[in-house]
Nucleic acid binder design. Structure first.
Lengths: 229, 229
DNA sequence: CGTTAATCGATAGTATTACTATTATTTAAC
DNA sequence: GTTAAATAATAGTAATACTATCGATTAACG
């Protein structure tokens, strides 16, 4: 619950929707229930028809908000990255140690360090969608067109954001973008593998094994880049 | 061209197909053209109808070989991993240094060190499918059922294979599976990002930047796991 | 040489998906 | 109280993802 005098509001490229889902009750229902249903049915099994039946409206009404379900997925992922940007700003406010900042960032990306301010909607359900379905928003034939329309801007901002932290640790580190995107996608994969394909990951020895693994991976890569033959 | 007296043959779980595509000319056409068409149209745009028109047969005939296009994708990815297992065996035959073995493995996984023995079919086209589409074979609602039927066995074998190399470098390394699956998925992502979302990766400074990055990442993680606070 | 079985092509048909269009009704805005 | 906007209701289309049936061809076997 948000009891404060300000609240989080995601900045989303308006071209992702036909009508702003935040602007009406129906729009909010579309967002809330689509998160639920994508997790229940998987993105392939999810359709606007099923969604409209569940929220007691018609397919045509849903289509007035989103061109198709891929655009809806793009909207959800962009919303998530805006939320992450906000979480990063909060958790690293007034912190100077760049290593701690990196640790915090990795914890936030692992959905572990959530500030007490709750997000609107089901943020855990949304995180599950990010882990399982979000790569389907860019592994598509029209990725270049989507990219030129700025549909991946929110994701890119997070990568740029964490790149600055890494460069604070070592301004000479050569491949910060590769490191960050490897870690982000890695977190999502490992969480999925832990549930569905456990032999592709390792049994968690402790609570924060995931942050631990990726933080150490990052730090050792940064520190060792010039020490290896 | 294979001019030798033995040739590569992939071992695939027979439950992935209804009729072995290797057993007939039509089956081989299905495999060859589906690799082409999935790359041209993307997996979502690819249909059995379009495939059958292209190879001059009927939809029903294609359905006699594969239950649906997801099973075909599973077949293609399994075929790829069998091919990789064979490549790994060749490139690391008679090599003792586990670090060199790891480097070779990462080079093979990056589609860079191909032995002179050509694989049947378009291995580069298949590799593109692996980078872009293969995660869609496990990010599905019925992943657990597919997994229990052994449909990801060939992938798991590669991970187990490279885990042994890592444990040769350091028998005490705690998270070899996480490291390997992170690297494998990372390679595929970075190659895709380099073409379509370049701000999520870094501009390649040299030819083997990708192997270089992931090899250093692996080695520094292995060497440093106990040196960090 | 003839029978049988397997394979494939041809055709047809169904349920679902992914939309688009139209109209009437309700709600909100001024 | 009028006007405009939003939505519900209905209908319809093209494509997708299959399934079923039926001959024609080929191969396998005795």
């Amino acid at each position: 619950m948000n009891t404060g005098l300000f609240r989080f509001s995601a900045v989303i490229n308006p071209e992702m929707y036909l009508k702003d889902p935040e602007s009406s009750l129906l729009g909010k229902n579309i967002i809330r229930e689509s998160v639920q249903m994508i997790n229940e049915l998987g993105f392939e099994g999810f359709t606007f028809k099923k969604l409209s039946q569940r929220i007691g409206t018609t397919e045509a009404s849903v289509y007035r908000y989103f061109e198709n379900k891929n655009k809806l997925l793009l909207y959800l992922t962009s919303w998530y990255w805006a939320w992450i940007e906000y979480q990063l700003a909060l958790i690293n406010a007034n912190i100077n140690d760049p290593c701690l900042k990196l640790w915090n960032a990795i914890a936030v990306l692992s959905n572990r360090k959530l500030t007490d301010m709750q997000g609107p909607g089901d943020i855990n359900g949304l995180f599950d969608i990010i882990c399982v379905e979000s790569s389907k928003s860019y592994f598509v034939k029209d990725v270049d067109s989507l990219n030129s329309q700025g549909f991946f801007y929110n994701y890119k901002r997070i990568v740029a954001n964490i790149r600055e932290i890494i460069l604070q640790i070592d301004p000479g580190y050569a491949t910060p973008n590769m490191l960050i995107s490897t870690i982000i996608e890695g977190i999502h994969h490992q969480l999925y593998f832990a549930i569905h394909l456990p032999s592709l990951t390792d049994t968690p020895p402790n609570e924060d094994y995931l942050e631990d693994f990726y933080y150490k991976l990052a730090i050792s890569s940064i520190q060792n880049q010039n020490n290896l033959k």
